[in-house]
Design a protein around this nucleic acid. Structure first.
Lengths: 124, 124
DNA sequence: CACGTATATACTCTTCAGGGTATATCAGAA
DNA sequence: TTCTGATATACCCTGAAGAGTATATACGTG
């Protein structure tokens, strides 16, 4: 599922389709990619459940399907908890800075909390 | 960025790290993968900003960084609008069914809204 | 210093995904 | 039916990513 959206062209196609349904030819023109390539990516997207197609004469109209996106969102959920905590911490940090350091001054390096263990490492 | 999380082992590593920071060896054991492989994936994750490392004697402790996750979330945003609309539609649909069809009966096919265009296709 | 542990890196090999080209299929028009 | 436009598929080729193995580097300990 993640492999599907790892491909830039496929993400481009999805971004197009979020606006409205499109035929293969329209996608081909708007993205400037070769027709077989478009068809192939659409096939992958269809088999993964990201899109569905509707026949309109010789054309096929493709549109999004919600399922996989929800799965991506679900995968993201645990990390979302994590990063919002970090944002909070950052905000508190900035609050403190704002109060204590009205104007330019080298921020003094502070050791991190009472936590156990050494903390000498540099972040690479 | 999506290429990063497309790799199953990397997602496994991230899922471990969401619990707490881990050393390379701990990851290696818990996931049962080879040490060079772990190091390589961690390198990729680090260069993409998903994790950061802290030196603790001969160990390196890895922990998550929020940035890229937020980017994934941001990418997902437009589609989120889209799929929640679909969920709404589904709910309305189910509501209607519940009201009108108390028990088994073939749901009558209805043509879609006042919108333009033919709609004869089957969904593949 | 020599040694063991923990981690990173270099190298090779294999696999596979995506691009390109040619062609098949299908629907409509003449 | 024949031609044309729209899309799908088959085929080949190339590049790049991941696994595996061996080795380098860094740190702590005796």
């Amino acid at each position: 599922m993640f492999e599907i959206i790892a491909e830039p062209n496929r993400r481009a196609i999805l971004s197009l389709l979020v606006l409205s349904q499109q035929s293969v030819g329209e996608i081909e023109r708007q993205l400037g990619m070769a027709q077989p390539s478009v068809s192939k990516h659409l096939r992958v997207l269809r088999e993964a459940g990201f899109v569905e197609s509707t026949v309109d004469a010789q054309r096929r109209l493709y549109r999004l399907k919600p399922g996989p996106f929800q799965e991506v969102d679900a995968w993201l959920a645990p990390f979302r908890r994590f990063w919002s905590a970090h944002v909070d911490a950052l905000e508190r940090h900035l609050d403190r800075m704002e109060k204590s350091v009205p104007t330019k001054r080298k921020t003094k390096r502070r050791r991190r909390g009472p936590g156990r263990g050494p903390d000498k490492g540099e972040t690479e």
